[in-house]
Every structure is written in C-alpha cells, then in structure tokens.
C-alpha cells in the first residue's frame, strides 16, 4: 500500500480517500466476524460434547421458516448491491427505491423471526422454562445458543436497517451521489456481513440434524 502514501496526504477539508474509508470498514467487519466467531467456537465445542442432543434439538426448528428467511435476506443483499450500481449510474430515485426494498425485506425477516420465536415460547422452549429445564443438558445449551446467536444476529439486522435508512436519507439530500458513494458502499458492506453471518447460522441450526 505504500505507493498510495503520497496521494493520501491530506489537504485540509478537501481530503478524500475512498480506499482508506473502505479499509476502515473492512477492518470493522473483521471485528464483527470475530465477535460471531467467538460464538461459533462455543457452538462447535458444545456440539462436539453433545452431538446426539444437538441433533435432537435441531428437529424442533422449522426448516421452512428458516429457508424463507434465507431467501429474503439473500434477496435483500441483491437489492442493496443493485442500489450501488444505480447510484453509479446517477439514478437517484431508483437507488432510493432499491435501498427501500432492502429495508422492506429486512423487516420481513424480522417479522418472520418474531413469529418463530413466539412459537417457541408458546411451546415452552425458552431459557429457564420448566419445559426446557427438564430436557437433557445438550438441548438446553442448544436453545441457549439458538436464542443468543439468532438474537444477536437480529440485533445486527436492526442496526443494519438504521444504517441503511440513514443512507437513504443521504441519497435524498444528495450527500451520496454519482461522484461520491463510498458511504453507501460501506453501508452495503455491513448489510452483506449481516447476510453472511446468517448463511452460517442457517445450516448450523436448521439443517444439521
């Protein structure tokens, strides 16, 4: 990267370095990945310790709901990527529409998630419930991890939605435009991260049984 050092020298307020900005974003994404990585380690260890019970517990999850949510989230990644192409071509309202679509899909994901959790609660599968406490320890751990990991993921979906909503505002006010869209790219990168984490959560919780 040293060859960029010269051009990166700042010049007061006019200083702009999109490569650097994106580099910062990537570093941040690393930290997010490692954050979830910690939980994946916990998952791996407990799965290794309680294989049969993890299998058993996984049958309680609804594959259909999971699959629908996976499709919804993947589509939202597509729309947000398309919004960048749109802004590159200067199509402001199309870009806003696509970011809006992403938000709608994200909301659909959360609503779906809500009903899924709600169902689990009504059948008594929640931390500390009398139902769950009497189950084998592996099952307790499985559901503990299920709530924590999908919960934290849902939190990231919400954060991502806020970020994208702000980006939509920026497109509206013209802060993000054809000549300068690194913010939108950063927001989209974050959204892809949310997506990628789900891509790992989905098979680990829904498919492996």
């Amino acid at each position: 990267m040293s060859s960029h050092a010269a051009e990166a020298a700042p010049h007061g307020h006019t200083h702009r370095d999109d490569v650097g900005s994106k580099m910062g974003m990537w570093l941040f994404l690393f930290t997010e990945l490692i954050l979830f990585g910690g939980m994946f380690i916990v998952y791996a260890v407990y799965r290794y310790m309680h294989q049969a019970e993890f299998h058993l517990a996984a049958t309680e999850l609804d594959r259909l709901v999971g699959t629908v949510n996976t499709i919804v989230l993947l589509t939202s990644s597509l729309t947000v990527a398309m919004s960048i192409t749109a802004i590159q071509e200067g199509k402001k309202s199309l870009a806003m529409f696509l970011v809006g679509m992403t938000l709608v899909l994200a909301l659909a994901f959360l609503v779906n998630k809500y009903f899924e959790w709600d169902h689990k609660f009504t059948v008594g599968l929640y931390p500390g419930s009398p139902e769950l406490v009497n189950k084998p320890q592996g099952v307790v751990l499985y559901f503990g991890l299920y709530y924590v990991m999908t919960g934290l993921h849902a939190l990231h979906v919400i954060i991502g939605m806020v970020v994208l909503a702000v980006m939509m505002g920026f497109i509206r006010t013209g802060t993000i435009h054809k000549g300068s869209y690194v913010r939108l790219e950063a927001g989209a990168l974050y959204w892809h991260l949310v997506d990628i984490i789900w891509i790992f959560l989905f098979p680990l919780f829904y498919l492996l049984h």
Binding site: M1, H4, A5, A8, D17, L27
Partner: peptide
C-alpha cells in the same frame, strides 16, 4: 482500526 488505516493511508 483508526490507527491501522491512518498508518496505511496517511504517511507523508
């Protein structure tokens, strides 16, 4: 994060 980016991108 800030320091890594600074050291990569802003050396004179």
């Amino acid at each position: 994060l800030n320091f890594i980016t600074t050291i990569h991108r802003m050396r004179a």
